[in-house]
Design a protein around this nucleic acid. Structure first.
Lengths: 150, 150
DNA sequence: GTTTCACTTCAAGCCGACTTGAGGTCAACG
DNA sequence: CGTTGACCTCAAGTCGGCTTGAAGTGAAAC
């Protein structure tokens, strides 16, 4: 048997065992069995975890990915869903570009206080409008501590 | 007095009263007083809330913004902090661009299953590497229900 | 055969940014 | 002067994605 121990999977992917157990519990990955207590995984889980990482980066929730992945491990994903998410990411990129530009402007603007700068005031008003018009969401992810990967 | 009632501020900004109270509690905004029970705000709070919206979009936490804003309402923000955040957003944009391209590819790739497509496999491996190398963070914000703004 | 110790389960905790609910108050309207 | 109802406070709840802690187990090393 070429199966991998959970510790080995963790080591090779950088995904902590607790997360692997959590993913299994949520139905995102499946273990092939146990050696004693320890979960064993098919090596294909490595690629699957890569896919999951990609999905997470794309903003899919665990629940969504569970739905997208068929039970048998072959993700037969609706291509329209992917295209729609790509479009959504495009929109986010545009928003972030605007925010970045605001920040750069604020960083470089010579006005003594930012609020005295007409350009910045306009940018702020735009942000406010966007915030109330669309959704009160943080356009950027929470920043976390980096995980030291193996 | 030209002060605005909390309800008026909520109406004009789309920020719910509960959030305004929360912001005040966290020291992000200050009310000028009360009319009876009701908080009154200087009209300047509108611009400040715009600034807060911009900051949130830029990924600053409430705590960070509280630190950035001086007590007197004039955000005297360290320009290096802004520039650094702009750079960080730039990095996020590049990540998201890669993810978006992966999704588009997956949406258009004719391979019967995505994992049979070499290009996609490569992209997935990249995502996995990125995920373990940097931080296991969702590169995209949680999507929430939109707030119907006034 | 005993110890070791990484794994196991299960429930609970954490984080951030708010929201919600219960119970209270007070300006204004009639 | 009484009712109304939007505000108030404070504590607790929500959401997602995990992590953590206590208590248990079993394969492997000695």
């Amino acid at each position: 048997m070429t199966d991998l121990d959970i510790a080995e999977v963790a080591r090779r992917t950088g995904v902590p065992p607790s997360t692997l157990r959590y993913y299994e519990e949520r139905g995102l990955i499946a273990s092939t069995g146990r050696r004693g207590l320890r979960r064993q995984f098919d090596p294909g889980v490595l690629e699957r975890l890569g896919l999951i990482a990609l999905g997470r980066s794309a903003g899919f929730s665990i629940a969504e990915m569970t739905r997208m992945f068929t039970p048998l491990g072959r993700p037969e994903i609706d291509r329209r869903v992917l295209a729609a998410r790509a479009d959504e990411i495009d929109r986010t990129i545009r928003e972030l570009t605007a925010v970045r530009d605001s920040l750069r402007h604020a960083a470089e603007c010579p006005a003594p206080s930012h609020l005295e700068c007409p350009t910045f005031r306009r940018l702020v008003r735009t942000a406010a409008a966007g915030a109330s018009r669309a959704a009160p969401r943080p356009a950027l992810p929470r920043r976390r501590r980096a995980a030291e990967a193996g």
